[in-house]
Structure formats: structure tokens, C-alpha cells
Design a protein around this nucleic acid. Structure first.
Length: 475
RNA sequence: CGGGGCGUAGCGCAGCCUGGUAGCGCGCCUGCCUUGGGCGCAGGAGGUCGGAGGUUCGAAUCCUCUCGCCCCGACCA
């Protein structure tokens, strides 16, 4: 059989990505333009993302709810900047029930408006605050160019929406959820991120301030992995979301919203995977270990018995395990297949192993092979997975740091345009920002809190700058 | 919306120029064989050739129209 290898990252990163997504059975194109089918392998990762994040949301006092998919078109118009930002991306329902609707509905691109129309009814007094709501939902944004997981017309996400009594509380909430995302990205996804505030031109339509976490993919491009917005009173004013305050007077609530999407799966892939296929950090993996049975006839039956017992032990330790007893495929084929699909740990078990009371364990990320005494399988498996989780983060962080540079002139910036994250001084002028984008393809990512802020001179104009901001080519 | 490409078996493609029984590889099914890095042998199933018109004795092939998708650019999580 022909060895059917993936394109390499080096040769063609985007081909590599698309092929990997399809061959690892994460997602498929659908019959609907721009929309994808998330397959069980991909959806399992999303379910794990949901599980971890949902627990964090609950821990921080949020409750889940669900709002309608359809939003009256007039709602969008109530917040001027919001409608302007989203109108090119809206899908609109004009007919239903066999006739034309009096007022069209838009399919939600996000839910600030429909949620505010409800919040306005729920909130009367400061005693109703804070109101901390999250929803897991699908949204639709019409896109001109789509890419599996990274940008599709319909996607899955969570959107948090909160209301507060004071501006300070809203800001605190915005930053708290940003920190939840940072922690999740780094400790669960093993993906280091730059955390900071977006510039005005990159701000969410309708927000006062937008913060993001930005990750570096293996092609050195930036990917916005999560956003948290301080909405101020913009939507509250548009929808009269008011409460009677401690002073007895009516006030508009102070709001936030924050979200991450199935895009995170794309981020995960482009952060960790290699030319052999998918690599998933153990904390999010659908399958932690596969036990591949080797041997034939009588010997095989004995091996299988042992493999089933081993799987049972591993499952008791909380691992997702599959036992592969398919005799129609050779072991070699299976090794390639499970590497492609991102199973964290391969355990080979054959007659020779049984004689020596051992098995072979191979970590997916570094493909190191070791012989493990059968008595130690559970402890060894868990320690290898722990090490893998940690190593993936360290490796990604080392890569990111090795491709992050301070640049001090426009020439230098131009020379390093494809080199990764560029930390540069900028005078804060949107026109300069746009010029850099047009000329070099570099956009501001955020003003990262980990980048020491000291005054300097704008790389383009030489004018004063309050501190360096992250520039990069971005997805 | 501009530029390019492609629609033929589940997937990848050839056949089209020069009209005449619809093919190849992979996958799939059955049986045998094999099993420590993509095994082998034999047999088998599977296609309104994207769609609609037209030319012709005859169209996957020529002509007209149409639909869809992918890639590259302008917008975006």
C-alpha cells in the first residue's frame, strides 16, 4: 500500500492544516457553503472544552440560560456601532409560515441585543445585580472566505453576558473572565497566550473596551483565541436596562460580554500538531490511550485478555481508553492511524511482552518508546500524560518566545514582518495602524500585560508612544 | 464581488482535443493468508459522467445556458 502522508507544515502550512482536519476525522465540509460538519473526533474535543470551561464559569458564579436564535432586525439597530459592525455579516429571515414576515429576523451573530431586551425585564433593583449569565449556542456570521474551525459561517461558542451596579464591577468582571480564558488556554490547552487590551479599531462593535488572548500558531501567525468586553452602558441605554440604585434613583446597568468558540479547536491543532497528524493535550483528548493487540491465534487470545484487564484498570484511573482487536489491519497501519488521530498514548501488547510481563508505551508528542512493567501501567500512563501536558506547553511557549521580537524602526518591522510577534511602539493613531496593516500586513493584536510598558517613539512617525504593543500577521 | 481552477464509483483521478461497450488507484464486501511501523492472493459490489437544453444515427466527449464547490485577493471570532 502506498504510504499516504500529510503535506508537511514546512511545505504548505494551510494544506497541512486542512488535510489534517479531514484525515483525523475532526470535521468535513458540508453541503451548505461555508458550514462544516463537526465529526465525533472533533466534537469530543469541543465537549471537553465545554466541560472544563463550564465548570469555571459556574465556579465564578455564572448560570447558564438560553436565548432565541432569531433576533428582530430592529433590535440590532438600537445600538448604532453594533449594527454597523455586524450588518455585512447577517443572515436574515424574511419569510416564515408560508408568508412574508412583517419584520425580518436576523439569525444571531451574537446575542447582546436579544439578551438585553430580556435583562431589562428581569432587573428592577440593585438587589437583582450582579446578573451573571452564560449561554452555549451556535451563531452565524456570513463570511466571504471560510476555513474549517477557524472561520465558518455557523459556529459554536459560549457567550457570557453580565450586568453590574458599577463601572468598576463591570471592569473587574471583564478582567476576571479574561483571566479564566488565559488560565484555560495555558493550563488546559497548553497554549501560551498574550493577554491584553485591543486597540479601538479592533474593538468589538458596541463595546467600550475589548480584551483578548492571542496565541501564536506554528506558522508564526497570531490567532485571537478569546475575547472579553467591557460594554459600559451602551446596550443598557439602547434597551433601557435600568435598576433602582441604593440612592433611590434609576441607573443604567454596567455590562460585560465574553466568548470563545470552536475556533479554539483550530488553535489547538495549529499549536501542537506535527507532520504525522493531530496532537492533543491530555486534558482535552478524546482518547488518552489505545491498546494495540499484537499476535495471532491462541497467543492473541491471551494477549487480548490481558489488554482488556489493562484497559479496565486505566479507565478506573479516569482515562479514556480503547482496545484495538481488529485483525484485518496490521499493527503498523494502526500506529500511523492513531498518530494521525491524536491518541495521546499508544500501548503495544504482544506475546513477547506477556512473556516478560511488560508492555510498550509510546507518547504521541515525542514518540519516545519505553518498556513498562505490567504492574506499573496505570502509574506510568498517568505520569506520561502529565509530562506530555506539561511538555506541550513548554514547547509551545519556547516557540512563541523564540519568535517574539522588539522592533525599534519601521525598517526593522518590515524586515521581520513574517517573523512572529513584533513588540513595537505606536503613537495610538488609527491611521498609522491602518497604514502598517496595508503596507506590511501586520495588525495590532493587543497591548499585552506581560510586555513592560515604557515610553518610546512610534516606529512610523517618531511621535511619543506610551508603550509597546503586539503586532503580527493574524488569522 | 474580482481573478484562477474543478465537477466522471465513498475518496483521488484518467478518458474529452480527434463522438462509437465508462476506466484506473485507494477504500468497501467475501474467503484464505498475515500481524512488533502503512502485508499478500483470489473473487465481488458500486456510476442518471453536477443539471437543463441543443447538434448528431449515436454525446462523459462538440455547442449554449445553468448550478455548485475549492483556491487566491478586499471583510472577520
Amino acid at each position: 500500500m502506498a504510504t499516504d502522508k500529510l503535506p508537511t507544515r514546512e511545505a504548505n502550512f494551510s494544506e497541512w492544516y486542512i488535510e489534517l482536519v479531514r484525515r483525523a476525522k475532526l470535521a468535513d465540509y458540508s453541503d451548505v457553503k461555508g458550514c462544516m460538519v463537526i465529526r465525533p473526533n472533533g466534537y469530543a474535543i469541543w465537549e471537553n472544552i465545554q466541560k472544563v470551561l463550564d465548570a469555571k464559569f459556574k465556579d465564578t458564579g455564572h448560570k447558564n440560560a438560553y436565548f432565541p436564535l432569531l433576533i428582530p432586525e430592529s433590535f440590532l439597530r438600537k445600538e448604532a456601532e453594533h449594527v454597523e459592525g455586524f450588518s455585512p455579516q447577517l443572515a436574515v429571515v424574511t419569510h416564515a409560515g408560508g408568508g412574508k414576515l412583517e419584520e425580518p429576523y436576523v439569525i444571531r451573530p451574537t446575542s447582546e441585543t436579544i439578551i438585553n431586551s430580556t435583562f431589562a425585564k428581569w432587573i428592577q433593583s440593585y438587589r437583582d445585580l450582579p446578573l451573571l449569565i452564560n449561554q452555549w449556542a451556535n451563531v452565524m456570521r456570513w463570511e466571504m472566505r471560510t476555513r474549517l474551525f477557524l472561520r465558518t459561517t455557523e459556529f459554536l461558542w459560549q457567550e457570557g453576558h453580565t450586568c453590574h451596579e458599577t463601572e468598576e464591577e463591570a471592569e473587574k468582571e471583564t478582567l476576571q473572565m479574561l483571566e479564566v480564558y488565559r488560565d484555560f488556554a495555558e493550563n488546559t490547552m497548553a497554549m501560551p497566550v498574550m493577554v491584553g487590551q485591543k486597540t479601538d479599531s479592533e474593538r468589538f462593535a458596541g463595546a467600550v473596551r475589548t480584551y483578548s488572548i492571542e496565541a501564536m500558531m506554528q506558522d508564526k501567525k497570531a490567532l485571537q483565541a478569546g475575547t472579553s468586553h467591557n460594554l459600559g452602558q451602551n446596550f443598557a441605554k439602547a434597551f433601557n436596562t435600568e435598576f433602582q440604585g441604593r440612592d433611590g434613583k434609576q441607573h443604567h446597568v454596567w455590562q460585560t460580554s465574553w466568548g470563545v468558540s470552536t475556533r479554539l479547536i483550530g488553535a489547538l491543532i495549529m499549536t501542537h500538531s506535527d507532520d504525522a497528524g493531530l496532537i492533543v493535550p491530555p486534558k482535552l483528548a478524546a482518547t488518552h490511550a489505545v491498546i494495540v493487540i499484537i499476535g495471532k491465534g491462541e497467543e492473541r487470545a491471551q494477549v487480548k485478555e490481558k489488554a482488556v484487564a489493562m484497559a479496565s484498570d486505566l479507565k478506573k484511573a479516569g482515562l479514556q481508553v480503547i482496545v484495538d482487536d481488529d485483525e484485518s489491519k496490521g499493527p503498523g497501519f494502526k500506529f500511523y492511524e492513531y498518530e494521525l488521530q491524536g491518541v495521546c498514548l499508544r500501548i503495544e501488547l504482544g506475546p513477547k511482552d506477556l512473556q516478560k510481563s511488560q508492555c510498550v508505551m509510546v507518547r504521541r508528542d515525542n514518540r519516545q518508546k519505553e518498556f513498562v512493567n505490567l504492574a506499573d501501567t496505570v502509574s506510568k500512563a498517568t505520569s506520561l500524560l502529565d509530562a506530555m501536558q506539561k511538555d506541550l506547553f513548554e514547547k509551545a511557549k519556547a516557540f512563541r518566545d523564540a519568535h517574539t521580537f522588539e522592533v525599534n524602526s519601521y525598517e526593522e518591522m518590515k524586515a521581520k514582518a513574517d517573523a512572529g510577534f513584533l513588540l513595537a511602539h505606536w503613537n495610538g493613531d488609527a491611521k498609522v495602524e491602518k497604514r502598517i496593516k496595508d503596507e506590511l500586513g501586520l495588525t495590532t493584536r493587543n497591548r499585552a500585560v506581560t510586555v513592560k510598558q515604557a515610553p518610546g517613539k512610534c516606529v512610523m512617525t517618531g511621535e511619543p508612544s506610551v508603550g509597546r504593543i503586539v503586532f503580527a500577521k493574524a488569522y
